[in-house]
Amino acid sequence: MMNNLPEATMTLILTRQHLEQVLTMRDCIEAIADVMRRFSLGETVMPVRLMTPVPGRGSHAAMPAAIPGLGVLGIKSITIFPTNPERGAPAILGLVILNESNTGRPLAVMDAAYLTAVRTAAASAVATRALARPDASALALIGAGVQAGSHLWALSEVRPLRSVAVYDIDRLVAERFIETKSRRHPELTFRLAASPEDAIRGADLVCTVTTSQTPVVDLNWLKEGVHINAVGAHTPEARELDSATVTAARVLVDSREAALKEAGDLIIPLQEGRFGAEHIRDEIGEVLAGIKPGRTSDAQITVYKSVGIAVQDIAAARLAYERAVSLGVGVPVEL
């Protein structure tokens, strides 16, 4: 990614359709790997997100960050309303505002839902590339929503996938997912799983992308050497992994500060006394920077616990803006 931003005097509006034209998963994976290294080396500025509960609906998140080395800062403002799909609306809606860091000029305003879907999966792909066994080819997707699709896309960029087992609490959702994705990925064998256990047994890679408040992964179902991307839970009370899995695994997080405040997958077993804070303090950016080890044996279970952090959004937004300006995509406006 270039450190010098394209010259522009107006603010660029980028819709979902614009982002689909300019933001590729492969490029986003590299942008996220770069910014996670910067983050763990202390080269970014990022407060923990501000969460505002919306009674009866969900929550609003304000996520600011600055990346001085890339010349940008910005904020993502999103709503997370889990029941929206029942009303025909996406669960995540919002905007990202991207500013250049010299004068603070707003460079772009863009759709946050698509950006979030891509950058979240790109972060899991970065962790998978760093932690999973090189020959990992059997993927289990627990949850068959938007993030399941983006994770399938992302992990196919970094590992030689051959088979995909899919489970969703709504069987019809899982069936539609398989029908759609099998056409897009004819090289893969898809299987509808009867339960999380059915999907997970024998998998080399597991992605949990659910809204479940209680564990959907049990240690007894996991094969040796499996890598897990735990993505769906992002509050202290919710978790997708059981305590035994987290205790047994080599755990990496995106941000230790955010994880210890927001990740129920880690907070709950920590409060149970299963382990000390040192067990869950290492960041994936430290592995990428060579500061901390990743996988230490073929048999080791590895977990990447993601809560999603603002530097990822701003790095992805910068990439999208850079590509959009280069390709002449988007609507320039004078604010």
Rank of each mutant, 00 (worst) to 15 (best):
residue 117 A to F: 09
residue 37 R to L: 04
residue 68 P to T: 09
residue 53 P to M: 00
residue 123 A to H: 04
residue 87 R to K: 07
residue 87 R to F: 08
residue 61 A to H: 15
residue 43 E to Q: 15
residue 100 E to F: 02
residue 129 R to D: 15
residue 80 I to G: 07
residue 111 D to M: 07
residue 40 S to D: 01
residue 61 A to R: 11
residue 116 T to M: 00
residue 78 I to R: 00
residue 51 M to D: 15
residue 47 P to A: 12
residue 108 A to M: 05
residue 92 I to R: 02
residue 95 L to W: 01
residue 49 R to I: 10
residue 44 T to I: 15
residue 77 S to P: 06
residue 108 A to R: 03
residue 84 N to M: 04
residue 144 A to L: 05
residue 40 S to E: 03
residue 135 D to A: 14
residue 57 R to C: 07
residue 84 N to Q: 01
residue 72 V to Q: 06
residue 144 A to R: 04
residue 122 A to G: 09
residue 135 D to M: 06
residue 144 A to G: 09
residue 60 H to F: 13
residue 118 V to M: 08
residue 121 A to S: 14
residue 115 L to G: 10
residue 53 P to C: 00
residue 129 R to G: 15
residue 110 M to L: 14
residue 112 A to W: 04
residue 106 P to G: 05
residue 145 G to W: 01
residue 51 M to F: 12
residue 99 N to F: 09
residue 97 I to A: 11
residue 84 N to P: 05
residue 80 I to H: 13
residue 110 M to H: 02
residue 107 L to F: 05
residue 37 R to V: 13
residue 62 A to W: 15
residue 119 R to C: 08
residue 139 L to P: 02
residue 120 T to C: 07
residue 93 L to R: 08
residue 76 K to H: 06
residue 109 V to I: 11
residue 110 M to D: 00
residue 61 A to N: 15
residue 103 T to E: 10
